[in-house]
Amino acid sequence: MQIIKDKQLVESNWTYVADGDALNEGDITVSLARWNEEKSALQAHQGKVGVRLESDADVNVLAEDVDSLTLVELNFPAFTDGRGFSHARLLRDELNYQGEIRAIGSYMPDQAFYLSRVGVNAFAMKNADELAVALSTLDDFSVKYQASTL
């Protein structure tokens, strides 16, 4: 699947593993609940492991884990649900998470710019046709007021 990562269109080979399904080989994402329950098994997994956060998650539960994660996905249940924006901020500023933060789910390509300013650096769009729009919006503004944001 194509995604945007660090302002480039790239191929993503992560596999979405639903709760209850067996772990695939290679790089996988699991829900936060599964991560919490099967952490040691997941940390022993051959490929890389990413965690999917829902919009009502408390990101602080990942405080101990940020160094062992290379991907956190923020799922937007609806584009109007702005909690993911604060989650991204907290992951970067409070937990000092350095890995990939990827926006997934139901958000607008027009939100990619604000998402990039709170620390999201990768974008998977439900509708792949919108990737080009999302990519172009990343350059919508060359100036900003909020010194503490990206």
Binding site: F79, T80, D81, G82, F85, S86, R89, Q111, F113, Y114, L115, R117, V118, F141, K144, Y145, Q146, T149
Partner: peptide, 13 residues
């Protein structure tokens, strides 16, 4: 005002 304008985190409250 400047802090509010295009604040990226608080546009979907």
């Amino acid at each position: 005002r400047q802090w509010t304008i295009l604040h990226p985190e608080f546009a979907y409250l």
